[in-house]
Nucleic acid binder design. Structure first.
Lengths: 238, 238
DNA sequence: ACAGAGAATATGTCCGGACAAATGACCTCC
DNA sequence: GGAGGTCATTTGTCCGGACATATTCTCTGT
């Protein structure tokens, strides 16, 4: 295959992408309809649709039946989480407000799936900062005997772990954290208002008390572009 | 739209996905060809292809012209990087061998793009561990006056930062690190042997000496499923 | 001026077809 | 046994068409 034999749908996708990235097409602008693209470029509707599908996949455009295709808003990372010490985990939980959606006792399968034992309460919700798009889709498991009720969670302006420490005779003395890149599944993507399959940073934190018991567990999905971790390690402090 | 009117291509995609996730179809198994799916399910080739495209997008199958469609290997994370202190950054660079691909002086635009000033040498390559699929696509910028040549880099069994400390009168005394989820671009995905648009963990590290000068900068893309960061914060050490 | 109905528009889904390009199996020859 | 060529197979690309569905616009009645 010579380098000239680039598929036509890719050529068109690239042209449109250049128009978007160069600013010639701005967020909110309407793109040509599929039929217009066919006429303008002398291609079939299939080829036009395939080109648009690539742009959609890249998050550059949004398409709706009956409404047309528009250039998507480009989300700059709104939230950089400094994290290299204990305090900043707590700070994150304060700054990124947890908007509770549902809560219920966790099933034994759910508990087993996250490698825990015992009874836990489960909270599902979104982390937000003001009216911005959601920063994260978060699920939290709290040890049942320490777990706050829904009204308490909704009223909290600190993290659940701080509340537990304050209201029970326990101290979080170790947090383990795990981060990896994942692709968002359909329902996750919908809740976060991004395209399904979008990349996200998955963060899992396990909070232990002094006896090693897991009193809290959280799992968050931060879509790409909305969240970065930043931290600094100084040799003098290692 | 009733819940019965799920598109046929999605119904087929779901059936095939169930076959894969249940183990009825195992990694390496050949799937039915497009024409076979048409006959078996009484659907058009377009519908069959659209179903397969969804599975491909999810990373469940791999398709090759002339060869057919197979169930993809599911990549468990092969490398969990403990990181919460200075030593483990160094350890990562040792364990995840940097396989140099190209090196050259960095252009002034490249240097400006990463927020640095001065002259730097640029190294492009893959991080690997034994014969596993690449862990990361990495680009490194070293301050030109301290930069090792290609032969040195290829022979190194430590990190470039340790080599610089050992062979020049400098000490790395601060590393800043930034992590976020990104979607891999086409060329990046090809080098990492994953599907384009796949999620990846993007890690950027900036190494400073005592005077605040940036002596090394690295940017790595770890595809989803191949790499997780794990670390632990103890209250007693904060 | 506003609400509702209907029509037009635009994308989503599905069909069938044809040709190109990459792969792998098979066969022949050395 | 291995190399090379050929052919069949399979996916990739592109075409055209039709109908369904969601959205938007326009017109009419109150």
């Amino acid at each position: 295959m010579s380098e000239q034999s680039i598929p036509r749908y890719r050529i068109l996708a690239k042209q449109l992408k250049n128009d978007i990235l160069s600013g010639r097409l701005k967020p909110g602008d309407q793109l040509h309809t599929e039929l217009e693209l066919c006429e303008i470029h002398d291609i079939s509707r299939h080829t036009a649709r395939e080109a648009l599908r690539l742009l959609s996949e890249d998050g550059l455009i949004a398409r709706r039946r009956g409404a047309g295709t528009i250039v998507a808003e480009i989300n700059a990372p709104a939230f950089a989480q400094p994290i290299g010490d204990f305090e900043s985990i707590l700070k994150y939980a304060r700054d990124a407000h947890f908007e509770l959606d549902t809560n219920r006792p966790a099933t034994s399968k759910e508990i087993a799936d996250i490698g825990l034992k015992g009874s836990y309460y489960r909270y599902d919700g979104l982390r937000r900062q003001a009216a911005s798009p959601p920063l994260a889709l978060t699920v939290i498991f709290a040890l049942a005997k320490l777990a706050p009720d829904a009204a308490t969670v909704k009223a909290l302006d600190t993290s659940i772990s701080e509340w537990i420490e304050r209201t029970h005779s326990v101290v979080v003395n170790k947090v383990t954290q795990r981060m990896e890149a994942v692709a968002l599944r359909n329902t996750e993507a919908k809740k976060l208002k991004v395209e399904k399959g979008s990349p996200a940073l998955a963060t899992t934190r396990t909070y232990h008390d002094a006896s090693g018991r897991v009193i809290l567990y959280s799992h968050s999905l931060h879509p790409a572009g909305r969240f970065v971790y930043e931290f600094q390690l100084d040799r003098t402090r290692s």
